[in-house]
Each structure stands twice: as structure tokens, then as C-alpha cells.
């Protein structure tokens, strides 16, 4: 079993830290203080013993480039129409300046630790790359020009792009812009 208790604090910006005020205004928002006991760990189905994905993460949209999560900073998809984000920002959102209105809507990248946690909370199915028609996320499934990180894992499978013929890096650099 994987305990979420400690790491959820690190993940607070994702899981929408809400204070006690949240309870007063909304019931739907789930923050660090309001994680129900059945969500404090990775859950498995009692029927067949299979892993259950964390619903809180799915609510944020199963959005990811390979190995790199980026999540909707807002509480959940359903609440998009309502105008609140983090509880401290709810009341006065209309009074905020333009740059806040813009930047608060950004879907943000996660750190390595957060990505690792989110991976654990998901099942294999959700981690599999998915290809849809007219997918606005399609261009972001591959990462370009990432020189520092290894491109393949120990089995030689490509980590951050669709499978293709693998060239040696110096050869790839000669003929293609990025690898």
C-alpha cells in the first residue's frame, strides 16, 4: 500500500489546498484537509484485486506527455464554469488584475516528484499513450530538443515519443533537427 499522507502535502498545489472556508462555501472541493479516509492510500478493488485509479487525479484530466504531467490547477473540470480556483482566490477573483486572470488559468507542469506520485496513483491504462482524432494535446505528446535526459530506457524502448526506428544520436543530429 502506498500512503498518500505525507506526499499529498508536496502535491498541495495540485490537489487544491483548501482551508476550512472551503467547507463553508463548497462541498465539492477536496483539499489536503478534506481528503476522506478512503482516499488516503492507493486503493484496490475488493472484487478482483485490481488497482483503482485515484479519482481526484482523473478529475484533473488524464493529461500528460510521456513522463511529464501537467494538470489543470483548478479544483476539477466540473467547476470550470464557476469562477473559483483556490479558496483564497475565490472571493476576489473578479477584483484581480488581467495578468492574474490569465496566469491562474495556466495548466502547469509538475515536478519530478509530483509526476512520480501521480504515476503511482494511476493505473497502467491511463499511463498508456492515447491517440485521438483532432486531439489538441497531440503535439505535446512528444518532447523535442531534450538533450539532457536519456531517450530510451533499459529495454531500448523510446521514453518520450512514438515508436520509430532508433538512430544513433550523432547520426540523428546530422539528419534531423531534434531527437
Amino acid at each position: 500500500m502506498f500512503s498518500l499522507g505525507k506526499s499529498a502535502v508536496a502535491c498541495s498545489s495540485l490537489l487544491q489546498a483548501s482551508t476550512a472556508v472551503a467547507a463553508a462555501t463548497t462541498t465539492a472541493t477536496r483539499g489536503v484537509a478534506r481528503i476522506p479516509h478512503w482516499e488516503y492510500h492507493i486503493r484496490f478493488s475488493p472484487k478482483d484485486g485490481r488497482k483503482r485509479p485515484a479519482q481526484d487525479v482523473l478529475d484533473r484530466g488524464p493529461i500528460q506527455a510521456p513522463q511529464q504531467w501537467h494538470v489543470d490547477p483548478r479544483a476539477s473540470r466540473k467547476e470550470q464554469g464557476k469562477h473559483f480556483i483556490i479558496i483564497s482566490k475565490i472571493v476576489i477573483r473578479y477584483a484581480k488584475d488581467d495578468s492574474f486572470q490569465k496566469t491562474s488559468l495556466y495548466y502547469e507542469t509538475c515536478t519530478k516528484e509530483q509526476c512520480w506520485m501521480l504515476d503511482k496513483m494511476m493505473t497502467k491504462y491511463w499511463l498508456r499513450p492515447k491517440y485521438y482524432e483532432n486531439d489538441p494535446y497531440a503535439p505535446y505528446h512528444t518532447r523535442h530538443g531534450l538533450k539532457g535526459a536519456p531517450r530510451v530506457d533499459d529495454r531500448g524502448t523510446l521514453l518520450r515519443e512514438r515508436p520509430k526506428i532508433l538512430l544513433e544520436d550523432t547520426v540523428a543530429d546530422m539528419h534531423f533537427r531534434d531527437r
Binding site: 498545489s13 506527455a65 513522463q67 511529464q68 501537467h70 496566469t103 495556466y106 495548466y107 502547469e108 507542469t109 509538475c110 515536478t111 519530478k112 509526476c115 503535439p139 505535446y140 518532447r143 523535442h144 530538443g145 531534450l146 538533450k147 539532457g148 535526459a149 531534434d178
Partner: peptide, 18 residues
């Protein structure tokens, strides 16, 4: 480009650069 940027970045703008 960092594989995992420490500071949260707007993902679309960050990836579009590269």
C-alpha cells in the same frame, strides 16, 4: 529545457518553445 522544470510552467507555452 529541463525534463522536469522545478518551477511550474504553463505546459503549452513551455513545450511550444522547443
Amino acid at each position: 529545457q529541463k525534463e522536469f522544470p522545478l518551477k511550474p510552467m504553463p505546459f503549452d507555452l513551455y513545450f511550444d518553445q522547443f
